[in-house]
């Protein structure tokens, strides 16, 4: 199995399954904190998707996209936590 095939048939379905789970938590999630964590998890899954796709299509430029999402997603989660702390 080549790395491209593994990314397309192994990593990406697994990531898609976890994205479905995270979305269910996002929709159900009793408290706001649950939803914030679910959004953070979706961001991490998104990074995984971009990295897997970069490997599958052999495009190193996409790794920078994953890096940018990682840096900005961190800010989003921190801001969420700050507002939850202030509101509650």
């Amino acid at each position: 199995m080549t790395i491209e095939a593994f990314m397309l048939w192994g990593a990406m379905p697994a990531l898609a399954a976890s994205a479905v789970c995270a979305t269910i938590r996002l929709l159900k999630g009793p408290s706001l904190a649950d939803r914030a964590v679910a959004v953070d998890l979706l961001g991490a899954i998104c990074i995984g998707f971009v990295a897997a796709f970069a490997l599958a299509v052999d495009e190193p430029m996409l790794v920078d996209v994953a890096l940018a999402i990682a840096l900005i997603g961190f800010l989003g989660t921190v801001a969420f936590a700050r507002y939850i702390e202030r509101g509650a």
Partner: peptide, 17 residues
């Protein structure tokens, strides 16, 4: 443009922390 936005994120993190 993106460079400026990413740099703004750096200072946003500093202001939050």
């Amino acid at each position: 443009f993106v460079g400026g936005l990413i740099a703004a994120v750096a200072f946003a993190i500093a202001s939050l922390a």
